[in-house]
């Protein structure tokens, strides 16, 4: 029980990390000229999308604004799932429930959180950032055409989402597998149990072993008989 509290706390910490990733920047890129003046600055926030801290009408900054954005429905879904996930762990924890089969919808919500986090960790950089020539995790380079030093970097939001995935994964997988196994058990517990026993136990073929031993005994008796025959023949004909 104590151990499960630790894992649940870790999960809640993960969910909080996920929620905090909405506050911090997910990705940022900055361009500075030779006199260290910031000419270009764009940051990506999960809810706000791309935004710039440069308010003046800087043409270079406006021209370099990335246009690839994730549809707003996805971060909203992530936010709702994270809040639901928090609610599930606090009020619908699997260890305190008896009718586990009623919790399959909760388990799917939790798994959905993992998919959405994976989307932001893997799909977003590959299909949204790279399309705009935005590099990750941290790159510093000089653009000779624009004569600007660029700094591309993932933000704290991205790191918090990675942390969120690691912390929530054990609890979610345990929740999902418990519900799934319970559902399987409930339909035909005897069959599931028998299958499991068959799978885990070592198979032994006693018939084969009996046959092997019989052959061994047969061979031994045949050899003994042959030896006896030879001995008799020698005694009869050899005159010993």
């Amino acid at each position: 029980m104590r151990g499960s509290i630790y894992w649940r706390s870790l999960y809640i910490f993960g969910i909080i990390c996920g929620l905090l990733s909405f506050i911090f920047d997910f990705y940022t890129f900055t361009g500075t000229n030779n006199s260290q003046e910031v000419i270009v600055n764009w940051s990506y926030n999960l809810l706000l999308g791309w935004y710039s801290s440069i308010t003046s009408s800087n043409i270079t900054n406006t021209q370099l604004k990335p246009y690839n954005e994730v549809a707003i429905i996805i971060p909203i879904l992530l936010l709702i799932s994270l809040i639901s996930g928090l609610f599930i762990s606090l009020f619908k924890d699997i260890e305190q429930q008896e009718e586990i089969q009623n919790y399959s919808i909760h388990s799917y919500i939790l798994v959905f959180i993992l998919f959405l986090i994976q989307f932001y960790i893997l799909i977003f950089p590959i299909f949204y950032l790279l399309q705009e020539d935005l590099y990750f995790p941290i790159i510093i380079f000089y653009d000779a055409v624009l004569e600007l030093n660029f700094f591309h970097s993932i933000g704290l939001g991205y790191i918090l989402l990675i942390l969120s995935f690691i912390c929530t994964f054990p609890y979610i997988l345990n929740y999902f597998l418990t519900v799934r196994n319970y559902e399987m058990d409930i339909y035909n517990p005897e069959l599931v149990l028998n299958d499991k026993i068959k799978e885990e136990n070592e198979e032994i073929d006693i018939d084969k072993m009996i046959a092997e031993e019989n052959i061994r005994i047969g061979e031994y008796e045949f050899r003994k008989m042959q030896e006896e025959k030879i001995r008799e023949r020698i005694l009869r004909t050899g005159g010993i």
């Binding site: 151990g3 960790i121 590959i126 990675i162 690691i166 054990p170």
Partner: peptide, 22 residues
């Protein structure tokens, strides 16, 4: 507890390989 530890390690494997692939 052992299962949870195993799931935690699986989670770490997934995340590091995801980053590696990207």
């Amino acid at each position: 507890t052992k299962n949870m530890l195993m799931f935690f390690i699986i989670g770490c494997i997934i995340i590091f390989f995801t980053l590696g692939v990207s």
